[in-house]
Write a protein that binds this DNA or RNA. Structure first.
Lengths: 261, 261
DNA sequence: TGTGGTGAGATCGTATATTATTTCGTACAC
DNA sequence: GTGTACGAAATAATATACGATCTCACCACA
């Protein structure tokens, strides 16, 4: 175990190869939502048999990146307009808790690193670049929840971010103006951590940080969409009919739960 | 979807067969933690080839019921003593939120059903049976979170309960005396729902309900274990050395976050 | 012209066969 | 007596082959 870091840990299995292959393509949108993942084709491209490809696809299915139907096949998951919303909401819950639970284990060094990254974020506002902003943003939050002592929750947070990455690239760029607020909220969260604020207060600060981002997106999205609709540019309502498990339609509003403190 | 209940949806695939086969045996502890799941053997018992068995095991791995190591094989997941703790903690977070988010959509009929079940729970205290109590308890909570409009979160709650079922059967029965408290807390939660209490208040009531159960178990467990240790009956410390991904050891205490209201 | 049956092609599901890796026992050297 | 090297058995990983199922276009018939 001590030297397993050398990385040349034999060859990566062909399943892993296929998994990485497909996942990469989904994330950089070479495989767009609705794209059919045909076992034989992918196997051919990779020079392997269908068995490992099959396994890779089932793993991606478990992560929600692809949809699968018996005897029919897999396709890259459709981006339900609600998907971003739902993912952010879920993330707000688990990440909020993870951040609060992680805080007591943060070292002063961690805090300093987080502050440094937030400074970079502030800096980048001048020559704004959505891609690097997103990366730095993840780095920042990673420091905040990485010490979460509950591995399940940490895993859920990781999955949430992964899902988000897959969605974000393919659907939209940033909401203008939100970045500045975001940096300010980061600073607020760091202050709470530093003065060892109440866990619940911290949890809700982190939760609301995410929900506020979501709301900004929803508002921006609505505005943009109606503008597009007026201009006759309404975006594609799903290429083909996909028999995906129905989502409940009932949803009231963006459900911001404000701090109680 | 409306008639998918007929179930005779052609033949269940052999993967599903194998999946159900293994999962059942894990849940009723015919396969105990540490038991090695050999592909060929299981395939033989089922009269199928190894391929579907392999897939079933990978699915079970994704759910955390089995541990898998490359080129070595799978075994039923060891019950990390922390596993129950971690699962309950995670569940407290997502179920608490799901309950609060579901509440606005509950009908008076739902409330009545929930009350009826809680009455049954209260009734069963006289002739206490852990198994049926657990079942009714799940029925009760299911009504509370079933309308949760966020399908991800609902899924997480379902998984949490599934995991719990796998753990609970094989490790312990109930904490004596906790059942009565539990019924009272259920009533409290129902009252909050009925008078349309604040979402946060409801969320924390549900969360704390679960955390209190966890704490009762931990306290009881500590007492029992030290008693057993004294009596020289200390339970098995893992059959064989298992190279399982390390869990972080740092953990302070049972982390009850009390209501702010 | 519209509707329902039918067959070919595509693709998945699974069985069988082959290869690669690990594990464990045994023998040999020190 | 202890440690290491070698090899055989067990088992997972992958390839190949075949049967099962779905999709879709085409055609007969009302």
């Amino acid at each position: 175990m001590a030297f397993s870091q050398v990385g040349v840990r034999s060859a990566p299995s062909k399943s892993q190869l296929a998994y990485a292959f497909i996942k990469t393509r989904i994330e950089d949108s070479r495989f767009t939502p609705g794209y059919r993942l045909v076992l034989g084709t992918i196997a051919g491209e990779l020079g392997v048999s269908v068995v490992p490809v099959r396994e890779a696809i089932r793993r991606l299915e478990a992560e929600g990146l692809v949809q699968f139907e018996r005897n029919v096949g897999a396709q890259v998951a459709m981006i339900d307009p609600r998907e971003y919303e739902v993912t952010m909401q879920t993330l707000s819950i688990v990440e909020g808790w993870a951040t609060a639970a992680s805080a007591p284990f943060m070292t002063t060094n961690d805090l300093a690193r987080a502050r440094a990254i937030n400074d970079q974020l502030a800096e980048s506002l001048h020559h704004f670049d959505p891609v690097s902003f997103t990366r730095l943003n993840l780095d920042f939050h990673s420091i905040l929840f990485e010490h979460c002592p509950n591995p399940h929750v940490r895993d859920l947070v990781d999955r949430g971010w992964a899902r988000l990455r897959a969605l974000r690239e393919s659907t939209f760029s940033f909401v203008p103006g939100r970045a500045r607020e975001s940096v300010a909220e980061h600073a607020h969260i760091l202050n709470l951590i530093e003065r060892k604020a109440d866990a619940v207060e911290l949890e809700f600060a982190a939760r609301n940080h995410r929900l506020t981002t979501l709301d900004a997106f929803l508002a921006h999205d609505r505005a943009t969409h109606s503008a597009k609709a007026i201009a006759g540019l309404h975006v594609s309502p799903a290429p083909t009919a996909v028999p995906v498990g129905g989502q409940p339609s009932s949803r009231t509003k963006s459900t911001i739960i404000k701090e109680t403190a």
